[in-house]
Nucleic acid binder design. Sequence first.
RNA 1: GCCCGGAUGGUGGAAUGGUAGACACGCAGGACUUAAAAUCCUGUGACCUCACGGUUGUGCGGGUUCAAGUCCCGCUCCGGGUACCA
Length: 911
Amino acid sequence: MIFPKDCLLLPPYNQANILSIKSKMDYNFHEIEKKWQQYWEDNKTFKTPEDLTNPKKCYILDMFPYPSGAGLHVGHPEGYTATDIFSRFKRMKGFNVLHPMGWDAFGLPAEQYAIQTGTHPSITTRNNCDTFRRQIKELGLSYDWDREINTTDPKYFRWTQWIFIRLYNTWFDETLQKGRPVSELSVPEEIKELGQAKIVKYIDSKRLAYYANAQVWWCPHCRIVCSNEEVLTDGSHEKCGNRVEKKNLKQWMLRIQLYADRLLKGIDSLDWPEGIKDMQRNWIGRSTGAEVDFQIDGMNEKLTVFTTRPDTLFGATYMVIAPEHQLCSAITTPEEKESVENYVKATSLKSDLDRTDLSKDKTGVFTGRFAINPVNGKPIPIWVADYVLTGYGTGAIMAVPAHDTRDFEFAKKFSLPIDCIQDPDVTDTDRKQRILEGNECWTEDGKYINSSNPETGIDINGLAKEEGIAQITKWLESKGIGKARVNFKLRDWLFSRQRYWGEPFPVIHWEDGEITLVDEKELPLMLPELEKYLPGESGESPLSNSSEWLTVTDSNGRKGRRETNTMPQWAGSCWYYLRFIDPLNDDMIFDAAKEKYWMPVDLYIGGAEHAVLHLLYSRFWHKVLFDLGIVSTDEPYQRLFNQGMILAFAYETGAGAKVSGDFVEEREGKHFHKETGEQLRQIVAKMSKSLKNVVNPDDVTSKYGADSLRLYEMFMGPLDVTKPWDDKGVKGVFGFLGRTFRFLSVSENIVEGDEDAEVLKGLHYLIKKAESDIENLRFNTAISAMMIFINLATKKGRVTSETARTFVKVLAPFSPHMAEELWNMLGNTQSLAYEPWPLFNEEYLKEDSFDYPVSFNGKMRFNITFPVTMTKEEIINIVMADDRTTKWLAGSKPSNIIVVLNRIVNIVVKN
RNA sequence: GCCCGGAUGGUGGAAUGGUAGACACGCAGGACUUAAAAUCCUGUGACCUCACGGUUGUGCGGGUUCAAGUCCCGCUCCGGGUACCA
């Protein structure tokens, strides 16, 4: 055997030492992670503090998952790791932290599985939750598991039902812009005179929860109601391919529209991404305008339209009503009856997508009837067209084809008159002529023309837009044929589903037509056990199959039937953040003092797909609860952040065919088809079963450990951008963790005494950087800073124990298992979860000198190091005397010399 | 169509208007090993050059500035949202 020279120099006892070091050096993440997860669980390390006197509190929330049968995918841990780092950091900063997790477990998949197999959804749900919980625990996330909640737990949905009762018993006082109990609603005298039935009707018309007919898509084949997205463009059901039809069903609705203004104004005060705020604003869609009445020629009826541009009334040359408009058949003349009826019927078969597709030609039919334009007395034709929707405005519009592209297209197609009433501000005289003649649409502003009428006395010619709107609105109001109005795009919320696996409504429909709610004391109203989960014949929920549960009799022998609809999945997720505050309370929804302490949620992280609906619905409920004095804040989520989607590489052939990951092999950085040998293009796509590019976190943790998975997900890039998963990237952070462990776990590397100045500077820079990066959720650069520090420390070969302890604390929020292990090895017996976060000392970061880049006309040429205290004049003198300056000036004289202290020197030379 | 983002090496990305490419992956070379893996070291935007060094470079075209990846104007492409909103 030949030994290398150096080896011979080692005394025998040192070789033994190497062995012991070697065993220490192994980064055995399996053992470490299991050990600390067990420790945290046994010691309830992350139990939420009960003490509510600490003024520093932080409520950190994840959007809780729907526990699907497929288990976790790598997208879940992204947001969870981010909130975990934030939570661990805040604990070290001395905050009381509330960081809970639960399950949004009502939902369709479990119900469909029940239909197929007869397995009760609660069993499927429990199994799925168990899988999710196991997987999440294996990531070492610091949740307080004593607060775990599940929306399908009767102890939880009891309170969801309780909130529904509150909504039902609340009305919105538009004067105060506030929800109030119906007991405080005063019924007008004229209604009181009409008797009890009318009084009840009046009150019902004010309740935030109301019962109404609503049109839904119905698949006769599957016997279920479908959502818009389940209906394909050709009007068939996505799942079975059969044709769907529209069906009117009695549904529960919530009057979110009344809260539109409050929901809109509330957005301003929130620390949310601007993009999400804009999306919510657009969804609410507030627009101001006016309602205008048009008298129908030859009938004692009027047609009311909503318009944002009442000032363009002189240009209104026809009207359009939606096919569902209530006056549609009354308006239609006998001659046009057949064509209108056919058109209405054809529309009802169209899916919403089909109907609203911009690329499709506009369709419509004439009703045979005219309306009178109030500003000039001209009769204008009334048409029916499906581009006008019933749900928005009044379901009728006045068309101004000269200045609205949609109206223009329609007018051109059906040869309707086009009257230009705004002077186009264009220099091109040909174009100007075309616009004035009604051969081109002008949608920008311009001074009014042709906008006066001696009979009505209006004249807005020459005025600008704002003044025109004001004058016409004033005129309409004075004549009693119109008024200023605010309109919202936001529609009331359809709040019932014809499903089994959801919260039952605590509602009884009595045989005499009365509707009553179940007494609060009787909650929760449980779901009945069923033999089969198929929907009822007529579109009713599966609950209608249950006989005992369904019927009730009151003390007077009156028979009643329970509501068979259930609540949508949104219901449970609308308020879960409140239950986390006091999840085990059986006496009330939550303790008021605890709510006051913990609310609002300080940081809420989840996917952008919930940017509108979940967040808007949740804010709506919260505002109602606020108005009723149940919660103490007006908004639930103070700071929101959306993580980006994690995509994965996929492969396609030159022809664009997708190739499953199984058939791809990599050679020299290129990708080839294993069978055909064809070179493939690497693309980035959503993870999907068909592309076989789904990454399972279990595979990653078993190979590299949870700390590596966490670190990689955070190191991939900024939290909010979509980014592709790359297995190779995990190796990078795994390598870093291994190097860190191997360095800090060897006692020879840890010394006592004074720290090296460079290491000290690096360490304090790291503390500062990590702290601000965590606060700003910029974890990728914080991790990079840790790598830089470890690279420096390993180069130096040793650090002081003080430095080691400090570094481990910085590492702790990111890779807590390894940090705990190292903390323990450094001689500590307690968990470091509550160790104070290290303070950085600005003194160590101070530099004596700065390496100035010297540039000529902005191009960097060379560097010179100067003391940081050196003045501009001294710097200029030395730089100008430098040989390299002479070289770059090449005989020219500088016209200007810019010195920005401790930043740059720029010498300007004019050519 | 409209709204909101984005475009930086082979890849993910970094960069208060002030040295573009930190950190990492990949790749290349080397060390260790019988060998491989693991680990460690070195190099690595492109182009010219033995080298010193130079030229060029942040999607495209203009502009502001002593100085632009960053600010402004006009485009192109990509991603997300939305669907005729009167």
